[in-house]
Simulated scan of single mutants.
Amino acid sequence: MLSKPSRIYLLFEGAFNFADKIIAPIFVVFLQSFSLTPAQIGVLLSVSNWVTAFLDFPTGALSDLKGRKLTSTGGLFLFGIGLLIYGLGKNFTTFVVALSLMGAGFAFVSGSITAWYLHEIKRIGLKSEIHRVFSLSTGFSSAISALAGVVAGIAASVSLRLPFLIGGAVACVMAAVCFFVMPENYGTQNKKHLAFMSDTIKTFWGAPFIRKYVYLQVLAEVGFCYFILSWQPYLMSFGLKASSLGFVFTLMMMAGAIVGLLLSRYMNHTNNPTVVALSVLLMGIAFIGMCVGRSLTAAVLSTLLYQCALAIKMPAHAAWLNGFLKDENRATILSAISTCVSVSTALFFIGLGVWMQHVPFKAGFILPAVALFIATLLAISMDRTEIRVTVSEQD
C-alpha cells in the first residue's frame, strides 16, 4: 500500500487533472462557437501562460518560504474559480479574466505540490517510492482524464458550458479537502523573499543541466502547443462531430493511463534521459503521421501515438530533473523553469495560431515535427554523469 503522502499527492494530481482535462475536448471548439479565428484563439490561450510566467517564480519562492500546502491548495482553488467564470463567459474580455485566474492558479500549483510531496516522502524515509509514484501519477491522472473525457462528452451534448462548470466545482471542492488533509512543509524559512529569489537565480543560471533542460522543454512545448491548437479541428476535418471529441479524448487518456501504469513497473530500472529522448522522438513521428494521414482512423492513431509518447515523457522528465535538485529551493527552481516554459508557450500559442491561419492545415504539422526531432538530439546529447558533477558543484 502506498504511503499517506503518496496517496494525497495522487489525489491532488487527480483532482487537478480532472478539472483541466474535462474541458480539453471542447476548449478550442467552445471558443470557435463565438466565431473567433485561430489567431484570436491563440492570443486567448496565451493569456494564462503570460500570467503564469509573471507569477510562477515569485510564487515558487513564496511556497518554499511560507508553505507549500497553502500555495498548492490556493492555486487549485483559483484554477477552479477561473473555470467557473470561463464557463459563464460570453465575450473576449470575460475569457481573458477567466484565463488569467487559471494561469495564476497554475503558477501557485507549479512546483509546489511536487516539492511538498518530495519533502514528505523523504521525511518518512520512503525515497524508493518516488519513481514508482511519478509513473503511477501519469497512469492515474490519465485514467482520471479518461473519466473526465466521458463526462465532458455527455455534458457537452447538453451544453458546451457545462464541462467548465463541473471542472470548476470539482477543483474548488478538492482544494478544500486537500487543505485539511495535507500537513504543511517548507523549503527554507531563514531568508527574505527577494534574497532567496536572487540566490536561486544564480543557481538556476549557473547549472548547465538546468539550462539544457529548459531548452529541451521549450522545444517540446512547440509540439504540445501545436497539438492543443490542432487536434480537435484536425479530427473534425475528417468528419468527426464535435460531440464525439470527448470520447476520442477518453480513448487518448486511456492509452496514456495504460502506458503510465506499465511504465511504473519498470521506472526504477530505466535510464531517464534515454526514455525522454525516445518519447520526444515518438511525438515527432506522431506529427508526421498527422501530416500524411488520409483517413479518420489514421488521424486517431496519430493522436493516440502523441498521447502515449507524452505519457512516457512526463514521469521520466520529472524523475530526471528532481534527482538533481535540493529540497531547500526545489519549488523555486521548478517554478523558475516553469516561468521560462510559460513565456515560450505564450509566444508559441500566438505564433502558431498565426502559422495555422496562413499555412495549409496538414502541411503545418511539419513545424512541430522538426522542433521535436531537434529536441530528441538535445536529449541524447545530455550526458548524465557530466551533468551530475556540474550540479553537485553548485552545492
Rank of each mutant, 00 (worst) to 15 (best):
T94G: 15
E393K: 10
S230C: 13
K90Y: 08
T200H: 07
V391P: 09
R68G: 05
F180Q: 09
A98K: 09
C308I: 06
L261M: 08
S392E: 11
F92P: 09
A171G: 08
M252G: 06
T114P: 02
F287I: 03
M1H: 13
F134E: 09
I366T: 13
A171T: 06
I350Y: 00
A24W: 11
V96H: 06
K122P: 11
F134W: 08
F349C: 01
L88Y: 14
L101G: 03
K66I: 00
L325K: 06
L378H: 12
F54R: 00
Y306I: 05
F79E: 02
A115S: 15
G246C: 08
S33A: 08
Q32M: 11
G82S: 06
G80M: 00
T114S: 05
G75I: 04
S230M: 14
Y213K: 03
K4Y: 13
L101N: 09
G239H: 15
R330K: 13
A242Y: 08
E328R: 11
T203K: 12
V300K: 06
F287R: 05
K202E: 14
K127Q: 10
M252Y: 14
L305R: 00
K313P: 01
P163R: 00
D20W: 07
A298Y: 10
D199G: 07
F365E: 02
F79S: 02
S381C: 05
R161Y: 07
P183A: 13
T94Q: 15
F238W: 04
S46F: 00
F18N: 01
R7M: 13
M236Y: 10
A336H: 07
I8W: 14
D56W: 08
Y215G: 00
G246D: 09
Y234Q: 04
G42D: 01
C178Q: 15
R384Y: 10
H269F: 10
S198D: 15
R68H: 07
V28S: 01
